[in-house]
Amino acid sequence: MSKEAIIKTNDLTKSFGAFTAVDKITFEVMPGEIFGFLGANGAGKTTAMKMLSGLLIPTSGKASVVGFDVFKQSEMIKKNIGYMSQKFSLYDDLTVEENIAFFGGIYGLRGDVLEHAQAELLQRLQLMDQSKKLVASLPLGWKQKLSFSVAMIHKPRLVFLDEPTGGVDPITRRQFWEMIYEAAENGVTIFVTTHYMDEAEYCSRVSIMVDGKIAAMDTPRALKDRFGAKNMDEVFYTLARGAKRGE
């Protein structure tokens, strides 16, 4: 590996009192990878992701994200990553344009730069004639594409996607993954959590968390080989079956 890892953790741990949500996880994500971060509910995915995105300060261990330390430089990390979650994509009561302007604005884009980014984004998504419409009136698939583009409006090198395709039909999901591939080809690293195992197959590498630890991490093909499984679904099931934590 010649390139520098974009995410690098070493024994990263987060405890809440006696409960250890994330237990000494160590892994690296290389630039341009689509890194699938899997795990059952309660396995510690969300906590790990919060630490990596500068929302939570870890209890112990080491981690650097886009070259910054998660303990000391969370502000710098926040500036250089994008984030999109299934729970919320865009403000329904604002227009497409206003949403782009707002999220561009909070990432420090303004004036000509913002206008340029906005025009480019609308053109790429072919939403030019919809820019004055309320986001609420867009179909869910479009919202999601727009949301993904907005998460990357400040051209981050790394994007966190937290279950980005929840509640979307298969065709839209496929289209969404095409966007992810396109972004990865342009050198953006994608860190994605999902519950859909077919999506796990699309990733360049996946890690599966069980009870706060990383139980397995490799390319989907290698994982299937190792567990003698037909698909990722079986791999996941074999590993997650051993979990002691419930929801």
Binding site: L55, K78, K79, Y83, S85, K87, F88, I106
Partner: peptide, 13 residues
């Protein structure tokens, strides 16, 4: 409730 708070908190604001 909408989950947008999280999004705002991961922004540099």
């Amino acid at each position: 409730e909408f989950g947008s708070m999280e999004l705002l908190l991961v922004s540099p604001v």
